[in-house]
Every structure is written in structure tokens, then in C-alpha cells.
């Protein structure tokens, strides 16, 4: 016999679970429970918990099964989409890095040619034709900077709208 278990506890547990205690159980077991502290504890605790369970199960206001089913489907769908999009995001990042590397390498390789071209950039665009002759020559910056800023802003908006659509 285990120090934590009376030899008749199994039998008693079975009777309690089936609801045979105390009416439909042998007299000797009833006498045993009166003298065995472990079995008396078992009866007391089991009856209290079973009563409480019967009362508690009548209490909840349960959400409809259909709503839970729908939520689970939604979560599984989102998980599937996330699983699928992970490698695609990885590929996009890889492509971006490669593009930046190529652009960087090209810039280094062609640095000399471009430096001359950049120096003549404003002349190539004939921006001075747009500037009123009354303005001083240094005012050209006041036109170039807002134009470039506008182009950058519009590019950002286009990229944002394109990614939003996806």
C-alpha cells in the first residue's frame, strides 16, 4: 500500500465517479470510510468538487460555436499568408541589397566621368533660361532644390501607393 493511498481508494473513487456513493455501495466500505481519514477526505473533496462543477457548468454565457470557428479560420488563414510572404519579403530585401551594390559599384567605376558631367549639370539643363534675368545667378539654387524635393516627394508617394496596392 502506498503511503499516500489507502488500498480501498480506487474502489471508492470508482463509486464516487459513477454516483453510486453512498446509497449503492457495500456496507463494509461505508464503515471503512468512517474509520479511514484518507478515504473520508476523498469523499468530502470529491463531493464538494462535483457539486461545484455541476453548478459552475450552468453559469457561463458562451460565445456561439460558429463565431469561434470563424475566428479560428481567420487566424489560420493569416498564419498561412504570413508563412507564404516570409520568403517573398526575404527575396525583396535580397534584390534591394543587390541593386544597391550594383549602383554603388557603378558609381565608383564611373566616378570620374560623372564628376565632370555633374559639374556641367545646370548648364546641360539650361536652367538659366528659366530664371528671370533680373535674378542674381546664385538664386538658381532656390529653383533646383524645390524641384528635386518635389520629385522625391512624388516618388515616395508613388512607391507607397504601389506597395499599398499589393
Amino acid at each position: 500500500m502506498s503511503p499516500f493511498k489507502c488500498a480501498r481508494e480506487g474502489e471508492l473513487s470508482e463509486l464516487l465517479r459513477k454516483g453510486y456513493w453512498p446509497q449503492a455501495c457495500p456496507d463494509d466500505l461505508r464503515l471503512h470510510v468512517e474509520s479511514c481519514r484518507s478515504c473520508a477526505d476523498l469523499v468530502l473533496v470529491t463531493e464538494a468538487f462535483q457539486r461545484s462543477r455541476n453548478q459552475s457548468t450552468a453559469l457561463p454565457r458562451l460565445e456561439p460555436a460558429g463565431a469561434i470557428w470563424w475566428r479560428a479560420q481567420l487566424r489560420r488563414r493569416n498564419a498561412a499568408i504570413e508563412t507564404m510572404s516570409r520568403p517573398i519579403v526575404g527575396a525583396q530585401i535580397f534584390a534591394l541589397i543587390m541593386a544597391l551594390v550594383v549602383v554603388g559599384a557603378l558609381a565608383v567605376w564611373q566616378a570620374e566621368n560623372w564628376s565632370g558631367w555633374l559639374a556641367d549639370f545646370s548648364a546641360a539643363l539650361h536652367l538659366d533660361a528659366l530664371i528671370p534675368s533680373a535674378l542674381p545667378e546664385s538664386s538658381i539654387l532656390w529653383i533646383i532644390v524645390p524641384v528635386i524635393a518635389t520629385i522625391a516627394l512624388l516618388s515616395g508617394i508613388v512607391v507607397y501607393l504601389a506597395s499599398e496596392k499589393q
Binding site: 457548468t57 450552468a58 453559469l59 458562451l62 460555436a65 469561434i68
Partner: peptide
Amino acid sequence: FAAFYARSARSLWAYLAR
């Protein structure tokens, strides 16, 4: 699932509540 839910939800709730 609906049938399983009907049979098991109350006892699960009782366990969690208690």
C-alpha cells in the same frame, strides 16, 4: 466542432473559472 463545443465548453469554463 459545434457538437464538440456544446459538450465540452461548459466544463472547460468551469475549470478556468474555478
